[in-house]
Design a protein around this nucleic acid. Sequence first.
RNA 1: GCGGAAGUGGUGGAAUGGCAGACACGCUAGGUUGAGGGCCUAGUGGUAGCAAUACCUUGGGGGUUCAAAUCCCCCCUUCCGCACCA
Length: 818
Amino acid sequence: MAYTKEIDKKWQRIWQDSNAFRVRVKDLKRPKYYCLVMFPYPSSELHVGHGRNYIIGDAVARYKRMRGYYVLSPMGWDAFGLPAENQAIKNNIHPREWTLRNIKKITSQLKSWGMSYDWEREITTCFPEYYRWTQWLFLQLYKKGLAYRKEAPVNWCRSCQTVLANEQVVEGKCERCSTEVLLKNLKQWFFKITDYSQRLLDDLGKLKNWPERVRLMQENWIGRSIGVSIKFPVDGLSQEIDCFTTRPDTIFGATFLALNFQHPAVSRIIDDSLQKEAILDFIEEVKKEEPLLSYNADFEKKGIFTGKYAVNPMTGKKIPIWVANYILSGYGTGAIMCVPAHDSRDFDFAKKYGLDISPVIEDPNQEQGTFEQLSQAYQGQGKLINSDDFNGLDSEAAKEKISDFMETKGIGIRQINFRLRDWLVSRQRYWGAPIPIVYCPDCGEVALDEGDLPVLLPEADKFLPTGRSPLADNEDFIHINCPKCGKEAQRETDTMDTFVDSSWYYLRYISPANNQVAFDSQDVNRWLPVDQYIGGVEHAILHLLYSRFITKFLADQKIIDFDEPFERLFTQGMIVKDGAKMSKSKGNVVAPDYIIDKYGADTMRLYILFIGPPQKEAIWQDEALQGSRRFLQRSLRLIDMLKSLREQSLEDLSSSAEKQLLRKIHLTIHEVTKDLEGDFQFNTAISRIMELVNQTYKSVSVGISKNTFFQAVDTVFLLLSPFTPHVSEEANSLLGNKESIFDRSWPEAKPEFLKKEEVEIGVLVNGKIKEKMKISLNCPKEEVEKNALSLPKIEKIISENSPKKVIYVKGKIVNIVI
RNA sequence: GCGGAAGUGGUGGAAUGGCAGACACGCUAGGUUGAGGGCCUAGUGGUAGCAAUACCUUGGGGGUUCAAAUCCCCCCUUCCGCACCA
């Protein structure tokens, strides 16, 4: 028999008609398993690069089903967002229409790949039935003060004409369109994710089954640093400037202060300065440059002296206060104490403007007395010098001592700072969930009642980005009576970032049709956390951080009783072709539809899983597909061969080919299971099944019983079934099995077949071992001391200990592992 | 600059201390075929040799070990994340 397209269609129909993958959340007779792939943004057809994600997910879901789990594997659409709008502008089509058209296309693609989704749970974030609850989520956050509006310098994309979250700015450029991002002072909506900084960081420790890489990326993004906030009095003014530093040990070397131009103290400090005009000019100049968020390599530090001095609280010395362009406004207090001897940035600045450089940490590599000729700052640890009572201390110890001292004297206070900023969620664009807030001339900012949801996204026909939301032009939408006082009021016209939609969707799958609540808490508590989440690493700090935050928030509200959404995370690598990520613009996309048409869905599935370790990037090679096709055909041909074999009872299986094949069957089961239970090593699992097929072929020529041969063939398709469901189902029924292959349980290796054949090994030893041998590890100690083993001794050790492993190289035993 | 991952045949990759190159692609030869494709058989890291075989070989250099792709030290290269975060 051969693999044809008809096999795909036949089994897809049977699965659909029998509702094979439907899950009833209340039914928990078997242990649950929630297998989730990151839902797609329906921007165009899927290519094989996208396919890897879903194929891995489906292999996991199908494998777990066979292991006896009740597996939930849902699919939905992250359907709001900019690309839909951009297409709308370009092709004069409504974003909804464009999105739904893509959804339809992708749905049919996924079905043709044989995915085992419960399609009754499909969710679409741009439908009011869904975004109503996104708005509900916003209101919950608002009620707790975690959704708030403030004016702040925010990231602004000129081309998309909207604000962006920090996470959406990549190397100073818009993640979407690569336009350089500007800083603009705007009043915007934020979620207070920073309230959760510490917990988001701490709980990374719980995520043992997340890739190390993702945890590190989140850790860096949250960016916790411990230090001291130090008060510097301004000479001649009743004013203090707080500076955060992680190096209190270098305080004696602080020779000047530098402020960002936005620092609140600046205007007072320069008020009576003779240089006031020049300083204001400088600030104007910096302001003009500041908007560009990215600092390129040739960014030049510059600053201007304010004319005022601060007092170093430890030395009592007066140190000049500068305004400088290299001080970040958003981090710490926007003012820093500068220690040019031990900070390369301060060093550059001090050199340029001739400011004092005063070393206070001994550089072990620097000769004494050459401070004046310093060519760079020493940023390492070391012994303190020129630091009064603290001289001689090591910097780590000094940090503690100096911090203690400052706290008792009231000079400074220990502080923890995070790099993480609040999540900017408002967008000045059309295709998103409206923010459920009203502005009343009397009551101010008023939240809508939950009962008034959803705030429907009004129809529109113009989407051109103008810098303000297109909703603002819709008179019918804007006008509303204030929910509090009934007076005429106006709606908020910004929409929400699409990452809000996707920050909670995994909860909605549990009760997708519920119109009373966002999700049923009881059911959600039973089914979550997600057992296995699968997706691309590009979401390591966007979606995955936001989802963790929202989950923690909901847990705090006692709406759910778990505080991490994803138990295990798997990040698959990209598939590249011609040295680049697949993309339409590069013209290197491989269309799966064509492959399925030519070779069948299982050939594609098998090849994508076989292409390489799934967490690593893989290179697509069209020619190599042929190998997967060949293998499937070769495997199916085994079924035809069965007929020609002789019947034989199990008792007289004596041939060594027979024994070897039995051993291979069980070894393969053992190894494939290990590969799947570990880190989804599909590539090696498949190669092992290929070995089994090869050996089964070979054993025919030697002579083999029908029973054993049948076992081998049956095992091949059973082990293959998570990868090649259609072919396996077909083979299963051809082999006369009544049950569907997915109702059969995963095979178990019988240990008696796995044992290595130990008996002959002693014979292979030709009398003596290498003269100078030291036996490592597990050999009995006294034998090691004797330094050599004779044949009888080896035989004794082997017979007494039945070793796991006897290693012999070229006829000599070199180690015995017991 | 900081943090991380990786470097193995013509190619994708196996092997996490035990005979490197499993499995697959490609290639070569032979068979089958009207031809092409498909399929079957054999071969396929390098050098020398008719051959058995010998020597060399996991980015480079050193070390530990009876034994290193694997562990340790130094260096080189590539990719990824963060980046004037004080």
